[in-house]
Design a protein around this nucleic acid. Structure first.
Lengths: 205, 205
DNA sequence: TAGATTGTTAATCGATTAACAATC
DNA sequence: TAGATTGTTAATCGATTAACAATC
């Protein structure tokens, strides 16, 4: 596996994967960098360049076999197997995440929920029992969890993060509207809908 | 107002705004590009360069008055006033969005919900009545809505988008896992948690 | 004043695009 | 074969960083 592929390239692979899956569902078998680029609104050259970091997946004159390319990108991203995920915070957002039907079919399996409200601990939400924060370390170690989603208020997010990192989590999807401080080896992605709304609001003039 | 500021700069302004609000809440009154950069994990030079697209907001030797800079960035982004937003789709995600407490205080006011399920139309969710899709055009025009959030299945997202655009919406926050085709003047931002998870999963090796 | 920090210019770095030989 | 498309190199473009005069 090549070292040092730019992160911006890695960030596009999931988009390629999503588009390829869609084409596959639509019954298409072959595509080209031009067609794929049109679907995604990016240039064909960029797609070919991005893929070239990892190998040769197409055929001159023909293009790409969709299911083959889909498999290869899934392998590169390591999403050709399942990953267990925990969710911390069971407010509206945490509950919605726990019940979201889109994780399972794409290989992310929610394994446990956590909340610090004693009223909620022990309840069931969807298919899961809610555990107290003190159980995070046990579950993460016991189930070999690498990935967590944070859906707690901003004021609690850094504390939760520290616990998760201490327990061995190394990928965090943070829904709290705050920047997290983490060690080098831990990866964080942020989702804050208001940030996206504000970005677009600039152009409403 | 300057024309042609790079979109990547616009995309960082909401992050600056969020950090400044936090500092303000913490009772800090003055900051520097270095301190702000440390909070956000970006260089001080980048912050100064970004701000220089819009004017001069600091004082040599001292730094930036936080509440002044916050006001200025809010003005630039046009988030110094309220915006009405509609939500299409009332599944788990749509409901969570409708009840999310983070929109109101940051100036985004959910005004109406839409769903195509006759069982759900007419019900109340939180503070809102659910309308059928045929009412989209009326509400968007009547209430002068510019911004919509899409929380319907991927298969319906493009159709909903076409209706929204036709009605006059020009900013869309799309939660459906699919790329949308829209006219030039319409802005789209995407939120798909699985895309973020897959991005991070690459590094779990 | 001495120290600190801005705003801006120029240099560097990295990403995207254009172009084309190779070849299916 | 003729036409099409890849993978890759070189050129272009744009974004980030370094450096520093201005000045509070």
């Amino acid at each position: 596996m090549p070292r040092d592929v730019p992160d911006i390239v890695i960030g596009r692979l999931p988009l390629y994967l999503r588009a390829l899956k869609r084409m596959e569902q639509d019954g298409i078998e072959i595509t080209s960098s031009h067609e794929l680029g049109r679907h995604l609104g990016i240039s064909s050259a960029q797609i070919r360049k991005d893929l070239s970091h990892f190998g040769e997946f197409g055929k001159q004159g023909t293009g790409y076999n969709i299911s083959y390319l889909r498999e290869q990108i899934a392998r590169i991203l390591q999403v050709d197997r399942g990953w267990k995920v925990i969710v911390v915070g069971t407010g509206n957002l945490g509950r919605a995440l726990a019940q979201y039907r889109g994780f399972q079919p794409r290989g992310y399996h929610i394994t446990a929920l956590f909340d610090n409200d004693p009223e909620i601990v022990g309840q069931r939400i969807g298919d899961f029992e809610v555990f107290p924060p003190e159980k995070i370390a046990d579950v993460v170690r016991g189930e070999d969890i690498k990935i967590a989603m944070i859906a707690v208020p901003a004021s609690e997010a850094q504390g939760v993060t520290d616990q998760l990192v201490e327990a061995g989590v190394c990928a965090i999807l943070n829904y709290a509207p705050i920047n997290l401080a983490v060690p080098e080896h831990v990866h964080v992605q942020y989702i804050d809908p208001v940030i996206h709304l504000q970005h677009m609001t600039y152009y409403l003039r």
